[in-house]
Design a protein around this nucleic acid. Structure first.
Lengths: 142, 142
DNA sequence: ATCTACATTATAATAATTCTAAACTGTTGA
DNA sequence: TCAACAGTTTAGAATTATTATAATGTAGAT
């Protein structure tokens, strides 16, 4: 469990100034056992309610994006109305629970390596992401 | 190439009233050889510019969603700021060109069948989607 | 301690989407 | 054929997520 000073170090390492707000956000995001999936809204709530940190919405956006640029966070595309972020920045896949709107990580061992046979000329592959949508077994299907 | 009356039939079959606007939209969407990927914005432009159909933005949204509910269209999650739709409603994967923001279909043969070893108790798999992000070979990477 | 560049803030602006309420139009069945 | 109703369309307002702006604050180097 890293403590405050470690975050200050870490932030400095990637060239981000360890401001009060950024350190606080690190604590919320990385002081946990499992990886964390969240929307900006989730994060603002956590900061204001649990951490008692009054923080401007704009700062949360700016800082999340700064973290993303520096490889601290990864954005996940699931639905077109909200941005989801993931503290696990390694290449991995996801389950998305359509009932609860929860994201669940997929271990590498859960899905075989994806083999892509098609080539787009002049383009290289940046990433390959699998999204498995799940829902309650007894739910009406579209 | 289906003509107007076929669309009227088709709409009726799934329980949608064949209104002027819906038939026009069918013509734009399905009178083509290849499957078509688009945003709401693209569609509005096509309708107003190419088809000379003045149509309310709200109607386009309503109708696209009606089509989606009825299985005429599929939504694709790529980026969190716009909704992309696909006239190919069968299970298939995509390439997304990050330079041009273009979607390209993947044939079934392009990617091996995805084998998922993890189970979420009480949940069943609704869909498995692979998104392959590609970009120009000489582009700076994040 | 002071300076400067970068951060934060409140607020305004923008963009995508949804809502609303009134007007309109397929469809049904008398 | 036509009235009546339910489903549609429409313009515009409202909402939601996000980004821009401009003033103020602060970390870090000198």
């Amino acid at each position: 469990m890293p403590k405050k000073c470690n975050f200050i170090e870490k932030l400095r390492e990637v060239g981000l100034r360890p401001t009060k707000q950024r350190v606080k956000m690190c604590e919320v995001l990385y002081n946990r056992e499992k990886t964390f999936h969240f929307t900006i809204n989730d994060l603002v709530k956590l900061l204001s309610e649990k951490m008692n940190q009054k923080i401007s919405l704009a700062t949360v956006y700016n800082t999340v994006h700064a973290f993303e640029r520096k490889g601290y966070l990864k954005e996940i595309s699931i639905d077109s109305h909200k941005s989801y972020f993931d503290t696990n920045t390694s290449a991995h896949h996801h389950f998305f629970d359509e009932d609860t709107h929860e994201l669940i990580d997929c271990d590498e061992s859960d899905i075989d390596k994806i083999n892509i046979r098609k080539n787009i000329t002049g383009k290289k592959i940046n990433s390959v992401e699998v999204l498995v949508r799940v829902a309650s077994d007894n739910q009406t299907q579209k």
